[in-house]
């Protein structure tokens, strides 16, 4: 190919316009990269949405719940012999006027405290405040937020001398029923979505000792459970019952299985709870 060449292609010159345009590349690139507003805006939007979501979650999801259930299945329903305390947050304001106190102490006062950690202190305080006449049940002012629906007459079988140091023994919810000596009081609770139960629909509970035959799902007043609809859309259901205490002096631990169900027999919640009775 000695006598041939590619001079036309080899000596091809880039047009002046091409070079001028290419010379402007650094400026245009710098302008594009100098302040990528869209990136800043996009990042800010993501952060903003995340903050709003977090705030909403904290406000409505957890922080503002009217009732904080402290260990709903353990602490709240812990029973030691006949003494039992129920923790309900201080800011709880059940709107249902029919809500009755969950427990009455031996001194006759309904106990509500802000935190479960306060539980040991309050009973002692009540014991010293009302040592004179433990047979007298409190009236509405002693429990301003949640009033008992019925104030039964003072049971005469209760001890007349309050225990000064130990927490007073709990007493059954007062429907005018006397607490038989030697019975243990147990309670069950469950938290579930309010969508599982209709407004005003009755809720029932039954329980049985573990490894024993299950109870039938009776639909009657004895099995009726109480429940509160919380602000976060959840329902706190509670059921209390009396069971025979252990024979002898030493308390014994019993484990019960329980279910909450509606009037159609649909199981809404179930669980297992242990009590020392």
């Amino acid at each position: 190919m000695d006598k041939h060449n590619f001079d036309s292609l080899k000596n091809l010159k880039a047009p002046r316009e091409w070079i001028e345009k290419a010379a402007l590349i650094p400026e245009s690139t710098e302008k594009r990269c100098a302040f990528p507003l869209y990136r800043v805006t996009a990042a800010a939007s993501v952060v903003l949405v995340a903050l709003i979501g977090l705030s909403a979650f904290l406000l409505f999801g957890r922080g503002q719940a009217p009732i904080t259930v402290q260990n709903a299945t353990t602490a709240e329903t812990r029973a030691i012999g006949n003494a039992e305390t129920v923790g309900v947050t201080e800011d709880s304001k059940p709107t249902d006027a029919a809500v009755s106190p969950t427990r009455a102490s031996q001194a006759g006062s309904t106990e509500f405290f802000a935190d479960s950690t306060e539980a040991p202190a309050k009973p002692a305080q009540h014991a010293t405040e009302k040592p004179a006449d433990p047979t007298v049940y409190p009236t509405a002012p002693s429990a301003p937020t949640v009033a008992p629906t019925e104030v039964p007459p003072a049971p005469t079988v209760l001890p007349t001398t309050p225990p000064p140091t130990t927490p007073p023994a709990a007493e059954a919810p007062t429907d005018g029923m006397e607490v038989p000596a030697g019975d243990g009081e147990i309670s069950f609770s469950a938290v579930f979505s309010s969508t599982l139960i209709g407004e005003g629909e009755p809720l029932y509970c039954t329980f049985w000792e573990q490894d024993h035959y299950a109870s039938s799902m009776a639909i009657d007043d004895d099995h009726k459970a109480r429940y509160f609809i919380l602000k976060n859309g959840m329902v706190l259901a509670m059921y209390e019952a009396l069971v025979p205490a252990s024979a002898g002096d030493d308390p014994h631990e019993y484990t019960y299985e329980y279910i909450f169900y509606n009037s159609r027999g649909q199981v809404i919640a179930r669980g297992t709870e242990s009590f020392i009775i």
Partner: peptide, 28 residues
Amino acid sequence: VLQKYADTVAGVCVMRLQNWADAEDCFQ
């Protein structure tokens, strides 16, 4: 760099694409 190698890059682009307009795009 632009002044020195503009012709080289332009030649490659023209050789490969055989069209001035297309070659300019690739050049840039």
